[in-house]
Measured scan of single mutants.
Amino acid sequence: LVRYRTISKIPQITLNFVDLKGDPFLASPTSDREIIAPKIKERTHNVTEKVTQVLSLGADVLPEYKLQAPRIHRWTILHYSPFKAVWDWLILLLVIYTAVFTPYSAAFLLKETEEGPPATECGYACQPLAVVDLIVDIMFIVDILINFRTTYVNANEEVVSHPGRIAVHYFKGWFLIDMVAAIPFDLLIFGSGSEELIGLLKTARLLRLVRVARKLDRYSEYGAAVLFLLMCTFALIAHWLACIWYAIGNMEQPHMDSRIGWLHNLGDQIGKPYNSSGLGGPSIKDKYVTALYFTFSSLTSVGFGNVSPNTNSEKIFSICVMLIGSLMYASIFGNVSAIIQRLYSGTARYHTQMLRVREFIRFHQIPNPLRQRLEEYFQHAWSYTNGIDMNAVLKGFPECLQADICLHLNRSLLQHCKPFRGATKGCLRALAMKFKTTHAPPGDTLVHAGDLLTALYFISRGSIEILRGDVVVAILGKNDIFGEPLNLYARPGKSNGDVRALTYCDLHKIHR
């Protein structure tokens, strides 16, 4: 019993810090008490220290592992850092350059016999395009090294910054494609005289377009951006097909006994025919423009016929181009109408809503002055909100995010209106959640004399007048207030005048 009563005193000691020596009952000389009392004092002292730490809000209350900052290894790049964003855009520009100039170089340097010394005699450094290609190869190699040090988000939505895990993730992902696209074939085969082989191998750079397509997928929600990307894709495919079309004609031209190829026909049409040795002929500019003209006309199913396939190889390629053109029509131009419709969806919704308003007016036989006010209010409210119901949009977000959005939407009023000066951010967040926005066209009466005042109004834009009878008592403008002081009276009061809008007004109100 003594032991039980001794232990039962522990909660009292913990909360009230009572010393055991003052209790005459606990001072009985028993061996059990002498053993338990020192333990009680020690526990009391420890609990006292913990309570003191909690009340003082000291940093040592938290466990040590929670006080440590997340460790980022040296030379690790955050995937959302500004440097990584700028670097990704730079790589994107280099990939676009590669997609345009690599097929052009591979096709127009394929057994090209233009006048001038061969590239091997001039030297590697004197070729501007080769120098640019070398810079692109170096940048792609540097990009691989950067990807080995860039964080990523795993399946659990955690940012991984450990170098080993980053390397394994990159090896399992895009490393092989990036490595093949970054191989400097110019340096590996330079001086061997195989410019045709170098041009063909350099087309491996186009593998990076797969990554670019995935990154550009984030802009699919913007109709104008999608339309622009589709047109660029169409032009890029036409450019690639033009390079292939020229390569076919250029390879067949020296081996044909009869002059029936499209390059021969082009030379005869523009007065620059090929001679018996295969030299001469149109310039590279004429060849490229004509090839691009043929691919565009074939892809769009126009086909004027002034550039036509004559050999079997050219006919087979033309059939493939027609098939590609039909697929592009289905996948690209078939979506253009939907994209344009999405661009004008706001206008369509406006006309639909206006039609419903006019049908309501016609069905209920609203008189002319009231009908005009109804239409003007709808037009003004639509121009202010673009038909978007803010309350319906915010309803799907958590309250903390709703408060931040409301604070942002009402920031101008909260910053410049005098009653809100000096208020804490928590108070402003709470008030912003209570605001209701209303609009009024010129001549609209917001409050009639004798109406119950259940709200306090803040003028965000425009001006109003307060009338008693036919006498203008006051004219209020931006950041002015009218209405009933909230919670100042037990019952809502009545208006002693009319409140009429002089201009288009936007008002925020808080109800009782």
Rank of each mutant, 00 (worst) to 15 (best):
Y65W: 03
Y65I: 07
K66G: 07
Q68M: 15
A69Q: 05
R71E: 13
W75S: 04
L78V: 05
K84I: 04
W87G: 03
D88P: 01
L90I: 07
L90R: 01
L92H: 03
L94R: 01
L94E: 14
L94G: 10
T102A: 07
T113G: 14
E114G: 14
E115V: 14
Y124F: 15
Q127C: 03
D137E: 15
I138C: 03
M139D: 01
I141G: 07
D143R: 01
I144D: 01
L145Y: 01
L145T: 04
I146V: 05
T150Y: 01
A155S: 14
A155V: 11
A155Q: 07
N156G: 13
V160Y: 01
H162Y: 05
P163W: 12
G164N: 14
I166E: 01
V168W: 13
W174D: 01
W174T: 04
F175N: 01
I177S: 04
D178C: 01
M179D: 01
V180F: 08
D186K: 14
L187K: 15
E196K: 14
L197S: 03
I198F: 14
L200K: 03
K202E: 01
R211W: 01
A213E: 05
R218I: 05
E221R: 13
A224R: 03
V226F: 05
C232P: 01
C232S: 13
A242V: 01
A242R: 01
I244N: 01
Q253Y: 06
D257N: 07
G261S: 04
N265H: 13
I270P: 01
G271M: 03
S276R: 04
D286V: 01
K287T: 01
Y288V: 01
T290C: 01
A291L: 01
L292I: 05
F296V: 13
S298D: 01
L299E: 01
N306E: 01
S308D: 01
S308F: 01
P309I: 01
M322D: 01
M322W: 01
G325M: 01
N335W: 08
S337F: 01
A338L: 13
A348K: 08
H351M: 03
N368Y: 04
N368V: 08
Q372K: 07
E375L: 11
E376G: 10
W382G: 02
T385A: 05
I388G: 03
K395A: 12
L401P: 01
Q402E: 03
D404Y: 01
I405N: 01
H408Y: 08
N410R: 11
N410P: 03
C417D: 06
C417K: 05
K418G: 09
K418H: 09
C427I: 14
A432V: 08
K434R: 11
P441A: 12
H448F: 06
